[in-house]
């Protein structure tokens, strides 16, 4: 970026924006909201985390070999998996494996499709300027769907335990007994992305599209990228959510058509 076409921000301009947070802090102090300290910590974290990630990206974008890019992509995926599990209120043996498999398979499959089939013309194929932000956006949404879906599945199975067991007692197969809970869980996991697709461009302008426009991209080009991103995110979320819920279902209902309620812990 020797000749950026957008207006560069130096530290003093960033500091001007930070003044706005000081105003918020002052309001908090005046009204005794008790938010001043939290705001300070949150602002400091924003600065430190983003500067760090910026430095990492700047370094990776500097023509690094493929395995460095791959390592970073793996680290991002691993962190997404850990976050997805940690957001669950209930656990069962195997939840780590199921979540990691679902996050990994859904996000890598869809991102690979985007890189190799949809965008395809970049050199080399692992071009970090594309691979890292694309995977990042896919992961951020997929982990959300996966954790919402898993929470909804265990919640439904715990609250409807008697119903599930009544069905099994009357001869239902494990799938027949679990189907209502599974469908509810998949729908719950998909709600945020479906809602986002419904209102995109009407209520909100997505950050990525706004960023591209600020960086002087043609708005219609930015829109095309955004459409691709929305489709990638929706399909990865669907794949990951369905995957984790089906894997969880297989753990909680065994081959003898028994519901292993005791395996779920709060």
């Amino acid at each position: 970026m020797l000749n950026p076409t957008y207006i560069e921000l130096d530290a003093s301009r960033v500091a001007l924006a930070a003044l706005l947070i000081l105003v918020n802090g002052a309001i908090s102090l005046a009204l005794r909201l008790g938010m001043a300290r939290t705001l300070l910590v949150a602002s400091a974290r924003t600065v430190v985390q983003l500067v760090l990630v910026g430095m990492v990206l700047q370094w990776v974008f500097g023509d690094r070999p493929w395995f460095v890019v791959l390592g970073l992509l793996m680290l991002m995926t691993f962190i997404a998996g850990v976050t997805a599990v940690q957001r669950n209120q209930r656990r069962y043996p195997g939840i780590w494996t199921d979540t990691m498999i679902s996050v990994w398979v859904s996000s890598w499959l869809i991102t690979s499709f985007a890189l190799l089939v949809v965008i395809r013309d970049m050199q080399p194929w692992y071009q970090p300027r594309y691979a890292i932000p694309l995977l990042g956006m896919v992961l951020g949404n997929t982990l959300n769907g996966i954790s919402l879906g898993m929470n909804a599945l265990t919640e439904a199975l715990v609250t409807r335990r008697d119903e599930v067991e009544s069905l099994l007692a009357l001869g239902a197969s494990r799938w027949e007994a679990a189907a209502a809970a599974v469908r509810h869980a998949v729908r719950t996991g998909m709600v945020p992305i479906v809602n986002a697709m419904m209102v995109v461009g009407v209520v909100s302008l997505p950050g990525m599209m706004t960023g591209q426009i600020l960086a002087q991209a043609e708005p219609l080009q930015a829109v095309k990228y955004q459409i691709v991103i929305m489709f990638l995110v929706a399909s990865a979320t669907g794949l990951g959510t369905v995957g984790v819920i089906l894997l969880g279902y297989r753990r909680l209902f065994n081959a003898d058509h028994q519901f292993l309620y005791d395996q779920i812990s709060e």
Binding site: D162, E163, S166, L168, A169, G171, A255, H257
Partner: peptide
């Protein structure tokens, strides 16, 4: 009574819960 024989077995042998759930 194992595996996929279980649902058919439960057609013949039905367990009734103390507190019935009817939906």
């Amino acid at each position: 009574v194992v595996g996929n024989r279980v649902p058919d077995f439960r057609r013949h042998v039905i367990y009734l819960h103390q507190r019935p759930v009817l939906g």
